[in-house]
């Protein structure tokens, strides 16, 4: 008995994988049904449905990049403190000192790549008409995921706390000031009053809600950090699960009817 066979016959191995190795047709089916990670897939699939020239693989790559961002992001959190005193210095030290400093490069380039692959995924789904019935709702989930991807990237842009970061966020968040009714420089904000007391002011408008302050400052850093590392990823993970579930429930990958 070889070592490999010995391991595969052991009680420990069999308790983890409840079937023989997927060498024959039966076990290739069973493996897809009994493995938690693999059961996202169907057991069998149409050949053209997985052809690269049809799918472009962009949805899968986006999901993979989300996993890369999660892993590198968690590692970066060990080295990074979201405070005015430390944020920039911690990034400097990631660049110049820390062994795992390349995680920041991978995280940033992965983020850019993810924005691009989300667009390309959407491009492909549109061009193959895959949003048409019965997949309408999954397209809507996808649009929400697109927004959240952009927000993830946007909130992460601030964290290095360098000139590039705070001014990009300043430019972006200035827009919130102009929100109709809810921004202190938006049309119609004067209409929201209680008697003579204005409800919408620079310290109570949409921009203030976003930044936690009148300008991009420590409160903003904290707010964006939590949004970037906890709040948005949780929502995204949930929606990804729904997105995948609906791909299966709506008839698998799209095909000519």
């Amino acid at each position: 008995m070889s070592i490999g066979e010995y391991i595969r016959e052991s009680q420990v191995w069999k308790s983890i994988f409840r079937h023989p190795a997927p060498y024959d047709r039966r076990n290739r089916i069973v493996v897809m049904l009994t493995n938690f990670f693999l059961h996202l897939h169907p057991v069998s699939i149409k050949q053209q449905g997985i052809a690269l020239s049809y799918t472009w693989c962009m949805g899968g790559i986006t999901f993979f990049l989300f996993l890369v961002e999660t892993i590198t992001g968690v590692l970066l959190m060990f080295y990074y403190r979201p405070t005015l005193e430390w944020a920039f210095r911690d990034i400097l030290s990631l660049r110049d000192v820390q062994t795992l400093g390349i995680m920041r490069e991978i995280h940033r380039w992965g983020a850019h790549a993810m924005v691009i692959t989300v667009w390309l995924h959407m491009y492909r789904v549109f061009l193959t008409g895959s949003y048409k019935p019965p997949r309408e709702f999954n397209w809507v989930v996808g649009v929400i995921l697109l927004v959240l991807t952009l927000l993830l990237s946007f909130t992460g842009y601030l964290l290095p706390w360098d000139q590039l970061a705070i001014w990009a966020i300043t430019v972006g968040s200035n827009m919130a000031k102009a929100t109709p009714f809810l921004g202190s420089e938006g049309p119609g904000y004067q209409l929201l009053n209680v008697g003579n007391y204005p409800l919408i002011t620079p310290i109570s408008d949409a921009r203030f809600l976003l930044l936690g302050a009148r300008n991009v400052g420590e409160e903003t850093l904290n707010r964006f950090y939590i949004l970037h590392c906890v709040a948005i990823p949780l929502v995204v993970a949930t929606l990804i699960a729904i997105h995948f579930w609906r791909v299966r429930k709506d008839g698998g990958i799209s095909q000519p009817l």
């Binding site: 660049r95 490069e105 842009y157 000139q163 590039l164």
Partner: peptide, 28 residues
């Protein structure tokens, strides 16, 4: 991604300074 990370360093400018507005200021 690893090769890209090795070949090209992620940008990092000077520390944030609310008094020095860059020209032009661009969004992401």
């Amino acid at each position: 991604l690893v090769l890209w990370g090795i070949a090209l360093q992620a940008p990092l400018e000077e520390a944030a300074n609310a008094a020095a507005t860059p020209n032009p200021s661009k969004a992401p």
